[in-house]
């Protein structure tokens, strides 16, 4: 490992705020991953469902998950300072 990289790792370790931020990013990414999986499963269910009431129920859940993911990506952008939107 190069000295510069080592120093940056050491700085991260010593800076409590930076450490908390890294942990925050890790947690939000983990939750976003779970939400994405849930979204995929629900979309599959929606494709197989014929009952209009059940379809509406699944659709409502999908809208909520999309909103949560959008919010999560926004927070992630703020934390990292970069830009991307949920797929």
């Amino acid at each position: 490992m190069k000295t510069k990289k080592l120093l940056s790792k050491l700085a991260d370790l010593l800076n409590a705020d930076r450490r908390a931020q890294i942990e925050n990013v890790r947690c939000i990414k983990e939750i976003l991953k779970k939400l994405k999986k849930k979204e995929r499963d629900l979309k599959e269910k929606l494709d197989e469902e014929d009952d209009p009431d059940k379809r509406a129920e699944i659709d409502a859940k999908l809208r909520v998950i999309y909103a949560q993911r959008t919010k999560g990506v926004g927070i992630l952008q703020e934390l990292r300072g970069d830009g991307c939107t949920p797929a």
């Binding site: 890790r26 947690c27 939000i28 983990e30 809208r63 909520v64 919010k71 999560g72």
Partner: peptide, 24 residues
């Protein structure tokens, strides 16, 4: 603690709920 805090950040507030309702 850290996962709980992150989850609570992602819960929907009144503005987000309004957006979900409008999307419908």
């Amino acid at each position: 603690r850290s996962l709980k805090d992150a989850e609570q950040k992602l819960t929907l507030d009144e503005t987000d709920i309004e957006k979900v309702i409008s999307a419908r």
